[in-house]
Nucleic acid binder design. Structure first.
Length: 267
DNA sequence: GGTCATGTTGACTA
DNA sequence: TTAGTCAACATGAC
């Protein structure tokens, strides 16, 4: 599921269920999701406690006695907390057993997600992944600065985790749709007032996403998200929604509403 | 069987 | 250096 709003939803769920409990044991159901040696991971986690969590982009960091565990959810990741081992979900890849007898599963159907350890959050964000600013926490100045000198297409730029962390394929479609920006607009050709509008839209779209807990089918009908399908009509103009491929992903947009919006072409 | 899917990374090219 | 394209990773749904 996970772009920023989904990961934020996981964070809230994790905080509510799994913080401050001693971890009695950890079972690695499939070590392909581990980015660290299984032995080291188990040794680190056993008898440890999840003290607090912090999200940056699509990554969730959880503070341990020393250092952090890092969850990434790929395309099909999830968390589930439960009290009976018989309820262990399908595709549970790592299972934490708490002292109170309850469990937390790190789920990853397609195993694109990864679990890692890091000494500091900065080391992971900056040195290991070179992630950009968090889309939910950034201010306008940071946003503007991060895009300066970037010549990438708007959709690519929004999805580039090294520029802004947290926005993926679905939410970039929504942001471009609401700002009536063609996905192939060059980001450095967007004027200042439009840039401000994009910034405000990012904040609002992510906020709605978090409120809706990332459950896409509950999103407002005037969003493009419920209409990201072939044959759907634009809720604004009634035109046909089209699909195009950018940055290895299929995006949806309304060719009637969304235009190249840059300094040279005027509006 | 073919196509598609909310992601990331490395190789290659311009 | 910056960007675009492609392939690979692995699994399930339609």
């Amino acid at each position: 599921m996970p772009e920023l709003p989904e990961v934020e939803t996981f964070k809230k769920y994790f905080d509510k269920t799994s913080l401050s409990q001693k971890i009695n044991n950890v079972f690695i159901r499939d070590n392909r999701v581990l980015n660290v040696q299984e032995k080291i991971f188990k040794k680190t986690i056993r008898s440890n406690i999840f003290y607090s969590s912090l999200r940056h982009g699509k990554y969730l960091f959880v503070k341990l006695n020393s250092g952090f565990i890092v969850f990434h959810f790929g395309m099909s990741g999830d968390l589930k907390y439960f009290d009976d081992i018989k309820e262990e979900p399908k595709h549970s890849r790592i299972l934490f057993e708490f002292e109170n007898g309850n469990f937390l599963s790190y789920i990853s159907q397609r195993m694109f997600g990864k679990v890692d350890l890091t000494n500091t959050i900065e080391d992971f964000i900056i040195n290991k992944k070179n992630l950009g600013i968090d889309a939910l926490k950034m201010n306008f100045e940071e946003f503007k600065k991060s895009l300066e000198k970037r010549t990438a297409l708007a959709k690519s730029a929004l999805m580039n985790q090294n520029i802004i962390a947290g926005i993926g394929n679905i939410y970039s479609d929504e942001i471009l749709y609401q700002t009536r920006l063609h996905p192939k607009t060059k980001i450095n050709e967007v004027n200042d007032s439009k840039l401000r509008e994009i910034f405000e839209t990012i904040k609002n779209v992510l906020k709605v996403g978090i409120e809706k807990k990332g459950i896409l089918k509950t999103y407002p009908n005037d969003f493009i998200i419920p209409h990201r399908k072939k044959g759907e009509l634009c809720p604004r103009c009634g035109g046909n929604i089209e699909r195009l491929k950018i940055a290895q992903r299929h995006g949806f947009f309304c060719p009637n509403c969304q235009i190249n919006h840059n300094k040279t072409s005027g509006d």
